[in-house]
Computed example of a mutant assay.
Amino acid sequence: MEKFIEAIRNSESLSYAFWLSVFLLLLVSLLKYFVSKESEKSDWGNLVLEFPIDVCLVVITIVITGFMKGENMPLGIILVIVTLVVSIFCCIFRRCSMSYSYMDGKLTKTLLFGLLDVALAVVWVGLVYSKIC
Rank of each mutant, 00 (worst) to 15 (best):
K69I: 09
K69D: 10
E71A: 13
E71V: 10
E71Y: 15
P74D: 07
L75K: 07
G76H: 14
G76K: 11
I77K: 13
L79F: 15
L79H: 10
I81C: 06
I81K: 05
V82H: 03
V82N: 02
V82W: 02
V82I: 14
T83E: 07
L84I: 10
L84C: 09
L84N: 03
L84M: 10
V85R: 05
V86F: 13
S87T: 06
I88Q: 03
I88H: 02
I88F: 08
I88R: 04
I88M: 05
F89Y: 08
F89E: 02
F89C: 05
C90Q: 06
C91R: 01
I92N: 12
I92F: 14
F93P: 14
R95D: 15
C96P: 04
C96H: 12
S97C: 12
M98D: 15
M98E: 13
S99E: 15
S99R: 09
S101T: 06
S101F: 14
S101Y: 11
G105I: 10
L107E: 12
T108A: 01
T108L: 06
T110E: 15
L111G: 04
L111I: 11
F113G: 10
G114S: 09
G114D: 07
L115P: 14
L115Q: 10
L116N: 12
D117C: 09
D117A: 05
D117L: 01
A119K: 02
V122K: 01
V122M: 09
V122A: 03
V123Q: 06
V123R: 05
W124T: 00
L127N: 04
